[in-house]
Amino acid sequence: MSTRDRELRFTHRHLLGIEGLYPFELTDILDRAERYAALNRQRAAIEPLLEGRTVINLFFENSTRTRTSFERAAKRLGADVINMSVATSSIKKGETLIDTAVTLNAMHPDVLVVRHGDSGAVELLSQKVNCAVLNAGDGTHEHPTQALLDALTIRRRKGSITGLVVAICGDILHSRVARSNIHLLSAMGAQVRLVAPSTLLPSNMGILGAEVYHDMREGLKDVDVVMMLRLQKERMEGAYLPSQREYFHFYGLDYDKLSYAKEDALIMHPGPMNRGVEIDSDVADDIERSAIQEQVEMGVAARMACLEVVTANLEDWRKENGL
């Protein structure tokens, strides 16, 4: 490895969020992911970089998609994977997050993939363990691997992220996907717009480095990418929005609103979709423009790249600390 390579790579033991990462660190992960994406598509053999390693998927919130994606990624790299979900753990018996971390740490895992319902919980857990920690979503804070797979999808379709105009639409206030994407896309030189009613998009969200729009047609004007977010059912019934149909009328993505975007605008959604709530079925299934299936595919590649880099960095960290 040349000196230059050493300098321009992702060097952290954990991946807890996108905020604060340099573009070259993100590019390092994306380049590796790009390679895995191609190999996965060819069903090619992959060097088992994680052979003999243990990856624990620790999910305090239910998630089939993300957990399966991480499991697939880890197994592709040859790791032993243990899935722990809240229902079968002692969390419900009153064990604290830190007790859980200490207990799991004693099993000498190499990577903990953690999802938790509270912002900052994954960071707290990472302070108590000797392995690498990947944030698979913490509260309404960050979901870094989702942003990386989104970026990978965009890069493959559009060639580059720099200079693109990306609109993120929906429940931005409660979205960790939105936060990670805003950080990543703006770090990579895209212009980010946020589109939502003001109850789901306080005006100061612009401080994250994006423009705020409350009119969807205005917000979608000439954009290259439309990224829709999932709207939680409990937010549609009066607390944040008067009704599902009013939301769809003003903020649901249909062909009329989409016509304001560039003709070749890419449609994305982190899933699972609420068809007819935030996105019209026809638009979601538009083979020409929807990248929603590809996002799932890229999820495995992006997570393989994340597992690869944190495991390599963990080795360095263990050597430095004599572990």
């Binding site: 905020e19 913490d138 509260g139 960790r176």
Partner: peptide, 11 residues
């Protein structure tokens, strides 16, 4: 409430 809460994803 404010910029930092938005950034940290806290209510």
């Amino acid at each position: 409430s404010g910029d930092l809460a938005i950034r940290m994803g806290l209510t």
